[in-house]
C-alpha cells in the first residue's frame, strides 16, 4: 500500500514537472531594486509605460517578448511618483518559458505588495525595454499585470508636461492612431496622459511609434520608439 502511494506521488511530481508550466524570468544580477518614498523621483522621460489593461491588480507582472538580447529592463512607476522600480531580467529560453498566452512572468520580490495593490490599473505604469537599463534601447515590449482577454486595450502612459498628446503607430502594413486623453484627477507627478488602442487592431509586425506633443501654441520635440509585437502562442 505504501509503495503504491509513493508511486502515485512520484507520478504526480513527474507529470507536474513535464507539463511545460510557465516559469519565472529571473533577475539579471539577483538584486531587486525598488523605491517607495514621498520624495517623488521623476525621470523626465515622456514615455513612462506600455501595458495591456488589466482587470486584476496584484504585484505579479508579465511581459510578451521577442528580444534578440538575453536581457531586458523592466520599470514600474506609480502615477504619483512615490513608487518606482528598475530591474534587469534574463531572457534565457531554458529558464523562462512563456505561458499559453505568450506571457512570461517576472520575478518581482517587492516589499510593497499592499501598496502596489492599492493602485488601480491606470495608476501603475509598466515599461519593458530590450537590453540593459542603462542602454539607450528604444524597443519596448508589452507588459501586463493579468492574463490577456479579448477586447483588451494596449495603453501608453505618457508624461506630457500638461501638453496635448497625439500618437501614431505605423508599420509596413498600416498606420494606427491611438486615442489620447488627459488624466484629470489625483496626483499626476510621473505621467498625466493615456493613449490607448484595442489590441485586436495590431497585427503581428513590429511598429514604429511617434508621440507628438503640442504645448504653448507650438510643438515639442518628437518622441520616437519601436514596439515589438508578439502573437500569443
Amino acid at each position: 500500500m505504501r509503495a503504491v502511494s509513493i508511486l502515485i506521488f512520484v507520478s504526480i511530481v513527474m507529470l507536474h514537472s513535464s507539463s511545460g508550466e510557465a516559469q519565472i524570468a529571473p533577475l539579471a544580477n539577483g538584486e531587486f531594486k525598488e523605491h517607495y518614498s514621498s520624495d517623488v523621483p521623476v525621470s523626465g522621460k515622456a514615455l513612462v509605460g506600455i501595458l495591456i489593461e488589466s482587470k486584476k491588480i496584484n504585484s505579479r507582472f508579465y511581459i510578451r517578448s521577442t528580444s534578440n538580447n538575453n536581457m531586458f529592463c523592466f520599470r514600474v512607476t506609480s502615477i504619483d511618483g512615490t513608487y518606482a522600480s528598475e530591474n534587469e531580467y534574463l531572457l534565457n529560453p531554458e529558464s523562462a518559458i512563456p505561458n499559453n498566452q505568450g506571457l512570461l512572468e517576472l520575478d518581482y520580490p517587492t516589499q510593497f505588495k499592499t501598496i502596489l495593490k492599492g493602485f488601480n490599473d491606470n495608476e501603475l505604469a509598466l515599461l519593458a525595454t530590450d537590453g540593459a537599463c542603462d542602454s539607450r534601447a528604444d524597443i519596448h515590449f508589452f507588459a501586463t499585470k493579468d492574463k490577456v482577454e479579448d477586447g483588451d486595450k494596449l495603453r501608453f502612459l505618457i508624461s506630457s508636461g500638461r501638453s496635448q498628446v497625439f500618437m501614431r503607430l505605423k508599420n509596413k502594413v498600416h498606420s494606427l492612431q491611438p486615442s489620447c486623453s488627459r488624466i484629470e484627477t489625483g496626483k499626476r507627478t510621473a505621467y498625466d496622459t493615456i493613449c490607448e488602442i484595442e489590441l485586436s487592431q495590431l497585427n503581428s509586425t513590429d511598429y514604429e511609434a511617434n508621440i507628438v506633443r503640442r504645448k504653448n501654441n507650438r510643438a515639442l520635440p518628437l518622441v520616437n520608439f519601436n514596439l515589438a509585437v508578439v502573437n500569443k502562442q
Binding site: 523626465g44 500638461r162 499626476r188 498625466d192
Partner: peptide, 13 residues
C-alpha cells in the same frame, strides 16, 4: 472645474 495644475515635470502654469 480643475483649477491650477499639480506640480510635476514640465509643468509651467
Amino acid at each position: 472645474t480643475f483649477i491650477g495644475e499639480d506640480v510635476g515635470a514640465g509643468v509651467d502654469k
